[in-house]
Design a protein around this nucleic acid. Structure first.
Lengths: 207, 207, 207, 207
DNA sequence: CAATAATCGAGACGGTACGTCACGTCTTCTT
DNA sequence: AAGAAGACGTGACGTACCGTCTCGATTATTG
């Protein structure tokens, strides 16, 4: 019987030795390091345990499988990247955010994100967790921003915000995952300018 | 010592029993089926061999590892999808191509494509093969098309064709891989209209 | 650092919560029950603790390992069987004792004895404890009895009492442990008669 | 699906790589060695595999558990000890056999026998195998011998041969297993003389 | 009566070995 | 020479217990 991801905010503990915070952190840290080095596929739970100086059973006690472990490690790693501060106009904010993502995508964290999405292709839970821990926290602020821009008349107001965001960010994810060309500043600028321009133009007849 | 991807078109073979074409096809077919059912991660060479009624060694004789096998199977599966016929104006052709992709992406083949990209995140060879067998064959025609459109003044002529194609197709790949929202006709229309509109507008000052 | 089997008869205890007699008894009782059910090899300290409603550490606080625990439990279980009352002639007494043993050997306690001897084959401490708690307490009275019989001329007086006792009881242990044939009354009678007869015959030349 | 101890005398093999005789022998040899060194309880399948230079799976492919492995190893080890040649009179033969057993019981093989009997206390299969591979092969000849002696009037003819053999050999097993006193020549002589004497005496009234 | 001290239950900890699975290689007989 | 069959050594899996360790709570003696 186990209790993964349970009652985190229980004010008082039950009996028994409390969970070792040191072990938990060492495991998550080791997972990130090995994920960078070996990728998701070649990540070994045994290696994580060994690197964290921890028994294998301690890993399995708290994470039921590699996927959940990686998700948690990923969530912890991106926690600090969560914030998405408006920096002036909506357009300026989104362009800035896209550039910051490009930086992240090129960094080791980007490789982890790519790995998580990759692993998610054969495990829906991972994909779901990627949503919960990465996509959604950013989308909630971005949607708010877009709706404000629509209200202010800065962009077309007849489109679904998520569709717009997918159009902005899709090309970035494409280059992250397919790696057909570098994900550099110029690319971000062109994509942003192109899409934004399309969003401010008068409506055209479809098809 | 083995000899993968051998000179197939040697006019005369050496001595010995010739390679069994039946076995080759059964292996590729079984690979595709199991890839659909189990995904790349849970695809077992042993299962492929068993399903194909073939010895495990026969698989390894011709494909050095799971990745190459999947790539070959993938290439065989998408072979018939290769053609990209122009259907009138450039705009009409691209919109049609995007819609056809959306259909494919929603089909079982789409799951295989997603799986291959996913597997490619921890194996550069797979990603490379995805390029060779899927991306490039389509891009060569698409680039030609775009360059014609630029020459005709239909779209801006100062952009890299691959950047443009990434902008068109990135959102589709995003929904294929992240599955945050359905990849339906409307989405394709909105993305196409938006991006195309951005490509026909007069230049705006970047940044 | 621990203190097993401590001087119990200290008239006044030190400070601190005293040892729980209830826990001690529950542990010994559970040990016997599980020993019967699972045998020594498959006896789990965790199961003992769980069955006794006791923390695992409480078991380890008082018994350093499974062997000592089993020995203690065994000693407690056989404590009441210790007495060996003379019932008339020496011959009659020994035959009676052998029959009582046969009954015990056929009972669940017999299985425990067999298990303890079995476990003793890979742990000398267990064998030693089996001696101390089971064999010797019986031998001291039996030897006295035999020496009396020798003095009285009932049996040969040139033999080592322990050799004689091994000859009497060896066959019983054999059937307890090897289980090649039932350990019934007839068997006891034949063994006793045969050996006793051999002990009363005039000496024969050895070899 | 496995096939332990199967079809040994199949005249022609099927397809597939044949079982490695080298591995089989190395495993049985290693098992005996480790059994001597560590006893049954502390015998590790992993150690057996390592010592035999063999994969753990190869051990499990042919023996379902430690018990069966030990039984097979034991059977192989005692195979050469099987013969029981008559050496003159029945009495002389039995005394000689008992002395030979005493020698074996004092040797490393004796420790293995003790271990097997010990392990048999918590696993009936082991005990059964001990019977099949050790006890019975000797008993068949011994029974024949005893029946001949009965017919010749050398010993009483109203007793079950197995009861007699248990009376002869029980004391030897007792000292092997309980180790309360040395299993030396004198002990064997006294036991043999005593029991034999009891078997040649005229019948006494039981009870 | 408060302070001290040892026990209790619970249960997490770092380990070791388990028995299973798939890997990629090999060895046999058959085609 | 390639085929299928299937055993081989390897190494990671996820599980079960080991014996130890921290907890908060309880129950004694001592100051």
């Amino acid at each position: 019987m186990q209790r993964h991801h349970l009652a985190v905010n229980a004010p008082s503990r039950g009996p028994g030795r409390p969970r070792s915070e040191k072990a938990r952190k060492a495991i998550l840290k080791g997972t990130i390091e090995l994920l960078k080095r070996d990728g998701f596929n070649d990540l070994r739970i045994e290696s994580v345990a060994a690197r964290a100086g921890v028994g294998k059973a301690t890993v399995y006690r708290w994470w039921p499988n590699k996927a959940e472990l990686v998700i948690d490690a990923f969530a912890a790693a991106v926690f600090k990247e969560l914030h998405f501060p408006p920096t002036g106009s909506v357009q300026h904010t989104i362009r800035g955010q896209m550039k910051r993502w490009a930086v992240i995508f090129r960094s080791p964290l980007g490789q982890i994100i790519a790995n998580v999405i990759g692993a998610g292709q054969s495990d829906p839970e991972i994909l779901k967790a990627f949503h919960t821990h990465w996509v959604e926290p950013r989308r909630v602020e971005a949607r708010k921003l877009l709706r404000q821009a629509m209200k202010d008349g800065e962009i077309r107001s007849d489109l679904d915000p998520d569709t717009i965001l997918d159009t902005f960010y899709g090309p970035l994810y494409l280059r992250l995952l397919i790696r057909n060309a570098p994900l550099d500043e110029d690319f971000v600028d062109v994509v942003f300018d192109t899409v934004l321009s399309g969003l401010t133009s008068p409506l055209k007849p479809g098809k």
